[in-house]
Amino acid sequence: MKRPDYDQESGKQILDAAGIAQKIAELGQHIVKEFGADGGGVALVGIQTRGAHLARRLAAWLTQKTGQDVPVGILDITLYRDDVLTIAEQPTVKETDLPFDLEDRPLVLVDDVLFTGRTIRSAMNAIVDYGRPKCVRLAILIDRGHRELPISADYVGLAVTTRRDDIVDVNLMEVDGSDSVCVRPDPKDAV
């Protein structure tokens, strides 16, 4: 695997604000291509926390492009994590709000980073407990590799080569005050 090219301390920015907007548009285009200009009744489900914000941005882009209202739901997968009782800092369970009927409806799951695949596995288990969608597609802003489960994204904004213990920081205006994506080494590695 090609060694990524980044600064040892602060890492490398791989997307800026414009880049993120660009990628969201690309994801939107994939969705339109698959489901048609009228949207096909598709609903977006963003995974808490940043996936939810991305889903809203994506929905806004789709609405602007197609003139259709695209329902957006947010999903918290904490209770479905396979490590929920063992991870060091017990995570706070956040809101889940799916304001539409899932039955027989195409869904697009949206998240910021696809890594081991465990989050998506949990999200699928959660979705299935809410109902039986027609199909589930996965839209991801950054695919950083290192899958531990057989999960793949249907629509990818940017695929990046990373080391297993690198940290990928996705900053979104709504949460972090700016838009950017950076990759940096785990501070533990610095000697």
Binding site: D76, T92, E95
Partner: peptide
Amino acid sequence: LHTAAPFKTLFTRSIKKVPTL
């Protein structure tokens, strides 16, 4: 109290369970 809120929303689902425990 904060944690109880999302649990309450589960009751309106047809599947009232989560696999957490």
